[in-house]
C-alpha cells in the first residue's frame, strides 16, 4: 500500500482535485444521514440558509416585481399581455433563480466558508476525525444538501412573491387592474417554465454549496487566510452562477 500523504490520510478532498472531488467525496457518504448528528446539522443549515432568508428574499422579490411591472407600464402603458409576458420571462426564467442564489451567496456562502475555515484552523476537523466521526459526512454532506434545497425553495418563493407583490404594488400605485395581470399571468404561465427555474436553481445550489465547502475546507493554517478564502469563494460562486445562467439561457434559446 502506498504511504498516505497528510491529505489522503484523513482528508479525502485535496486542494488539487478541486470542486468535483469534493462533490464526489460527499456523494459517496450519503449514508451519513443515518447518524443523528448529520440530520441535526442539516436542520440547522436549512434554518440558517432558508428560514432566516425568508424576509430578505421577500423584500427583494417585492421590490423586483414592482420595478419590473412599473417599468413595463411606464414604457408601454397598461398593456397587460406584454407586461405579464415580460414578468414571466424576467422573474421566472432569470431573476428568481439568480437573485435567490445571490442572496444565499451573500448570507450563507460567507458563513459556511468562514465556519469551516475556522474549524480547520482550530483543529476541530482533526478532532472530529480523531473521535471517529467522518468530517466529510458530518460537515459537508448536510451543508451541500441543505444549501441546494434552500436555493431551489427560495427561488420558487422569490418567483411567487415577486409576481404577486409586483401585481399588488402596481394595482395600488399605478392603477393597473390586478385581476387583468393575474388572468394574463395564469393564462401564460407554463409548468415547464417553473420546472426550468427549479432545475436552474438546483444547479446553482449545488455549485454554491460545493464552492463554499471547498474554500472553507482548504484554508491554510492561518487565521489571516480566512478573509481571503471567503472573498475567493464568494467571487468564484458569483462567477460560476452567472456563467451557468448564461449557459442555461443559451441552451433554452437553442431548444
Amino acid at each position: 500500500m502506498a504511504t498516505p500523504t497528510r491529505d489522503n490520510a484523513f482528508n479525502p478532498i485535496s486542494r488539487q482535485d478541486g470542486y468535483y472531488s469534493l462533490l464526489m467525496a460527499a456523494a459517496k457518504r450519503g449514508s451519513a444521514f443515518r447518524a443523528w448528528p448529520t440530520r441535526a446539522v442539516l436542520m440547522k443549515q436549512i434554518y440558517f440558509t432558508g428560514v432566516q432568508a425568508v424576509l430578505p428574499v421577500a423584500l427583494l422579490a417585492m421590490i423586483t416585481g414592482t420595478l419590473v411591472i412599473s417599468e413595463m407600464t411606464s414604457v408601454l402603458g397598461i398593456n397587460t399581455a406584454f407586461t405579464t409576458k415580460v414578468l414571466l420571462w424576467i422573474v421566472i426564467r432569470e431573476l428568481g433563480p439568480l437573485l435567490a442564489a445571490i442572496v444565499i451567496i451573500a448570507r450563507s456562502s460567507t458563513a459556511i466558508i468562514a465556519e469551516l475555515a475556522l474549524m480547520r484552523i482550530n483543529g476541530e476537523i482533526s478532532a472530529l476525525y480523531a473521535m471517529g466521526v467522518d468530517p466529510t459526512g458530518y460537515l459537508l454532506v448536510p451543508r451541500l444538501i441543505g444549501v441546494t434545497l434552500c436555493v431551489a425553495i427560495l427561488s420558487i418563493y422569490f418567483i411567487a412573491t415577486a409576481t404577486l407583490g409586483g401585481m399588488l404594488m402596481s394595482a395600488l400605485f399605478q392603477a393597473v387592474p390586478v385581476y387583468r395581470l393575474a388572468d394574463q399571468f395564469l393564462a401564460m404561465a407554463n409548468p415547464w417554465e417553473l420546472g426550468y427555474a427549479v432545475l436552474k436553481s438546483t444547479v446553482f445550489g449545488v455549485v454554491i454549496a460545493t464552492v463554499a465547502c471547498y474554500h472553507g475546507w482548504n484554508v491554510s493554517q492561518s487565521v489571516n487566510a480566512i478573509p481571503q478564502v471567503v472573498t475567493q469563494g464568494v467571487m468564484r460562486s458569483i462567477f460560476l452562477v452567472f456563467l451557468l445562467d448564461a449557459l442555461f439561457a443559451y441552451a433554452l434559446f437553442r431548444l
Binding site: 479525502p12 474549524m119 476525525y129
Partner: peptide, 24 residues
Amino acid sequence: APDERLALNRRLAAVFAEGGLISN
C-alpha cells in the same frame, strides 16, 4: 483504508490538552 482507520478511532477516546471540543 481511511474508513477502517476511522472505525478504529472510535475504539480510542482522547482528552486533548485543550479539550478538542467543537466550538459551534
